[in-house]
Deep mutational scan, measured.
Amino acid sequence: QNEKLANELKSLLDELNVNELATGSLNTYYKRTIKISGQKAMYALKSKDFKKMSEAKYQLQKIYNEIDEA
């Protein structure tokens, strides 16, 4: 289960640069939040902690959705 979550989180991290570029014309909230979420996700992957990875995955998905809707 950890392996599956780690792969999903890696996949979301692969999209980080594209989504970060998409924040160029948006409010600074999005820029700041996506950077923080990305850092948390990288830390969670290194720690291999299921709870941290779950939270990081949720945060990344949430900010990606917010950027898409903005």
Rank of each mutant, 00 (worst) to 15 (best):
T23L: 09
L60M: 03
L26Y: 04
M42K: 11
L12A: 02
G38D: 01
T23C: 09
K35D: 04
K62Q: 08
Q39T: 09
Q1L: 13
E69Q: 13
D49R: 02
Q1T: 09
E66A: 09
M42A: 08
A22M: 14
T28M: 13
E8F: 05
A44V: 02
A41E: 01
I36E: 08
Y58H: 10
K51Y: 08
K46F: 09
Y30G: 01
S37L: 15
L16G: 01
L16T: 02
A56T: 02
N65G: 07
Q59C: 14
A44S: 03
E15Q: 15
I36Q: 08
K4E: 09
Q61W: 06
K62Y: 04
I63H: 01
K48A: 06
N17F: 14
N19F: 15
D49H: 03
N27W: 05
E55A: 09
V18E: 10
Q1R: 12
E66W: 10
S37M: 15
S11P: 00
G24K: 14
L5E: 02
M42Y: 10
E20S: 09
E15I: 13
L5W: 02
N7A: 13
N2V: 15
T33Q: 15
A6C: 08
G24W: 09
L16Y: 14
T33G: 06
S37G: 05
D14S: 08
E15Y: 14
L26G: 03
L5I: 07
L60Q: 00
K48S: 04
S11C: 13
A70R: 08
M42P: 00
K57I: 15
S25M: 11
I34N: 00
E15R: 14
E66N: 04
S25C: 14
Y29E: 04
A70T: 04
K51F: 09
L16I: 06
D68Q: 15
L16W: 08
E66Y: 07
E69D: 07
G38F: 14
N17L: 14
N17A: 14
Q39Y: 09
K52D: 05
L45E: 01
A56I: 03
K10R: 13
E8W: 05
Q59L: 14
I36Y: 09
Q59V: 08
K52L: 15
Q39K: 10
Y64P: 00
E55M: 08
I63T: 04
Y43K: 12
L60A: 01
L9E: 00
K46R: 10
A56Q: 02
L21M: 09
E3G: 05
K31G: 06
F50K: 04
K52M: 13
E15W: 13
N7M: 13
S54H: 07
K31H: 05
E55W: 10
N2I: 15
N7Y: 13
D14H: 07
K51N: 10
D68S: 15
S11G: 08
S25I: 08
K48G: 14
I67T: 02
Y58C: 10
L12S: 01
S37N: 09
D14I: 06
I63N: 01
S11V: 10
A44H: 01
V18H: 11
R32V: 12
E66I: 07
L9C: 02
Q39W: 11
L5Q: 02
S54C: 13
K46P: 01
Q39I: 14
Q61S: 05
N19H: 15
E3S: 07
A56D: 00
E55G: 03
A56L: 04
Q39S: 06
I67A: 02
L16M: 06
M53G: 00
Y30L: 09
L26D: 03
D14P: 00
K10H: 04
D68I: 15
F50S: 06
T33E: 11
L45R: 00
A22I: 11
L26Q: 04
L60C: 02
L45F: 06
K10P: 00
L60P: 01
D68W: 15
K4L: 10
K40Q: 09
N27P: 14
R32L: 11
L60E: 00
N65W: 12
E3Q: 09
I63S: 01
G24T: 12
S37F: 14
L26C: 08
A6H: 06
N19G: 05
L21S: 06
E55S: 06
K62M: 07
L16F: 11
N65F: 08
A22P: 05
E3K: 07
L9Y: 01
E8I: 05
K51A: 11
L5C: 15
L13G: 00
Y30A: 02
Y64Q: 06
I36C: 10
E20R: 10
E8D: 08
S25V: 10
A56G: 02
L9W: 00
K10E: 06
K51P: 03
K4N: 08
D49E: 05
A70L: 09
A70P: 03
N65K: 14
E20I: 15
Q39R: 13
Y64T: 04
E8V: 04
S37R: 09
E3I: 09
E20D: 07
V18P: 04
I63W: 02
D49L: 04
M42C: 08
S47P: 00
E55V: 09
K52R: 12
N27I: 05
A70V: 07
Q59M: 14
Q1Y: 10
K10N: 04
Q61R: 06
E20L: 15
L45K: 01
E8A: 06
S54M: 14
Q1C: 12
Y64R: 08
A41R: 00
S25H: 12
Q61I: 13
R32A: 06
A41Y: 02
Q39M: 13
S47W: 05
K62H: 06
V18N: 11
Y43W: 13
S37Y: 15
E3T: 08
M53W: 01
T28I: 13
S47V: 08
K35C: 12
E20M: 15
N19L: 15
K10W: 06
L45I: 07
K4A: 10
S54G: 05
Y30D: 02
K46W: 10
A22G: 05
N19V: 14
E55D: 08
S11W: 11
N19C: 15
Y58A: 13
L9A: 00
K40G: 03
E20V: 15
K35Y: 11
Y58N: 09
V18A: 12
L13M: 05
G24I: 14
N65L: 11
K10D: 02
Q1D: 13
K10Y: 05
D14Y: 08
T28D: 14
E20T: 15
I34V: 07
K46T: 07
A70H: 05
I36N: 05
E20G: 06
Y29R: 05
E69H: 12
K52A: 11
Y64C: 05
E69T: 10
Q61T: 07
S37A: 15
L13K: 00
A56C: 03
Y30K: 03
F50N: 06
A6W: 15
E55R: 09
Y29K: 05
L60F: 02
I34A: 02
Q39G: 04
L12H: 00
K62E: 05
Y30N: 02
I36D: 06
L9G: 00
L45D: 01
K52C: 10
T28E: 15
Q59K: 05
T23R: 05
F50M: 08
R32G: 03
L45A: 02
A41P: 00
A44M: 01
R32T: 10
K40M: 13
S11I: 11
D49Q: 04
K48F: 08
Q61Y: 05
A22K: 15
Q39C: 13
K31D: 03
T33H: 10
Y43H: 13
N17D: 10
Y43I: 14
M42T: 05
